[in-house]
């Protein structure tokens, strides 16, 4: 017999050993993305077709820049957690570790590239 309460036995356990943190993150980020999806699609829809200088000026404005940055950062971290569930379902052992590392590195590279581009367009617009 174990002399601990049921609550203590459940603390920090679960198959993930991190409780429901990933599930809760996906819940919170999905709520944010429900709002960001239509906003992002409007921003991109208005941007496609603009000539180069107008496009740079467009993404230098606060609303398009913030919506795009938020969508890509929140979306790609949501993507990391989502691929993690898929990887846990279909891959084992070393393949699983490699797949998780590739997913995380790739997603943060996409975030870095997008943030760099948006930051540069914002600074160029300020300089003008």
């Amino acid at each position: 017999m174990r002399y601990i309460t049921p609550r203590k036995a459940a603390m920090g356990l679960g198959s993930a050993h991190s409780g429901t943190a990933d599930h809760w993150f996906l819940t919170v980020s999905s709520c944010a993305l429900v709002l960001l999806v239509p906003a992002f699609m409007l921003v991109i829809g208005n941007a496609i077709g603009l000539p180069h200088p107008e496009l740079v000026a467009y993404f230098g404005r606060p609303y398009p820049a913030l919506i795009t940055a938020l969508f890509i950062v929140v979306g790609m971290v949501h993507f990391i957690k989502g691929t993690r569930i898929m990887i846990d379902d279909y891959f084992q052992h070393t393949a699983r570790k490699v797949a998780i590392i590739v997913s995380v590195v790739f997603s943060w590279a996409v975030i870095a590239a997008a943030v760099f581009a948006l930051a540069k367009m914002t600074l160029v617009t300020v300089a003008i």
Binding site: L55, F116, M121
Partner: peptide, 29 residues
């Protein structure tokens, strides 16, 4: 699950397009 993972194609195209816009006129073209 399939749509969530396939969205990587669209995001890659758009991020490439954004980075090209700050790289130069040829890259953007």
């Amino acid at each position: 699950r399939i749509t969530g993972h396939a969205l990587v194609a669209g995001i890659l195209l758009l991020v490439w397009w954004l980075v090209a816009a700050v790289t130069g006129p040829q890259a953007f073209a």
